[in-house]
Deep mutational scan, measured.
Amino acid sequence: SELMNSSKLIRMLEEDGWRLVRVTGSAHHFKHPKKPGLVTVPHPKKDLPIGTVKSIQKSAGL
C-alpha cells in the first residue's frame, strides 16, 4: 500500500492556503481562511497510510 510523508501532505495543505493554528502532541491542526472546518494531520510521520491521506485531503477539499 502507498504511504505518504506527513511533511509532504502539510506542504500540499499550505499551498492550498491552510495555516497551522494549533499543535496538540503530534496532532497539527490547520484552518483555512475561506474553507470550513479544521483539518488535523499527525506529524511528524514518515508513513501515513494512503487512506488517512485521502481522508485528510477530502476534509481539506483538495
Rank of each mutant, 00 (worst) to 15 (best):
R19S: 11
T52N: 04
G61R: 06
K31Q: 14
H29P: 00
N5D: 15
H32A: 00
R19H: 09
V53I: 11
L48Y: 02
P33W: 07
K8N: 15
S55I: 08
S1P: 10
S55E: 14
H32V: 00
P36Q: 14
L62N: 03
H43W: 05
G25C: 11
P49H: 07
F30A: 01
V41S: 00
A27V: 10
D16W: 03
G61E: 05
K8L: 12
S26H: 11
S59T: 12
G61K: 04
M4Y: 09
K45G: 07
H32D: 01
A60H: 02
T52L: 15
S26M: 12
Q57I: 15
M4P: 06
E15F: 06
V41N: 00
M12P: 00
L3P: 15
T52P: 02
T40V: 12
M4Q: 13
V53T: 06
V53P: 01
E2P: 08
K54M: 06
K34E: 13
R19L: 13
T40L: 07
R11F: 08
S55T: 08
K58T: 10
P44L: 04
K58S: 09
E14M: 11
L62H: 04
E2A: 08
L20M: 07
L38A: 07
K34T: 15
V53S: 04
A27I: 11
D16C: 05
P42G: 04
T24V: 12
G17C: 06
H28C: 05
K34A: 12
D16Y: 06
L20N: 05
K45N: 12
P36S: 13
S7H: 14
P49A: 11
K34F: 11
A60I: 05
K58H: 14
E2W: 06
E15A: 11
K35N: 03
G17F: 02
V53K: 02
M4I: 09
P42R: 04
K58Y: 06
S6E: 02
P42D: 06
P49G: 09
K46N: 15
H43S: 03
K34H: 13
L20F: 04
K31H: 08
T24Q: 09
K8F: 13
L48G: 01
K58C: 12
V21T: 09
G25F: 09
A60P: 02
L48S: 01
R19E: 12
L38V: 13
L20E: 05
K46G: 10
D47F: 13
F30R: 01
P49K: 09
K8Y: 14
N5S: 14
T52R: 09
P42F: 04
A27Y: 15
P42W: 03
G61W: 03
T52C: 11
L9Q: 02
T24W: 07
T52E: 09
H29F: 13
I56M: 02
I10F: 02
H32F: 01
L20I: 08
P33D: 14
D16K: 04
R11T: 14
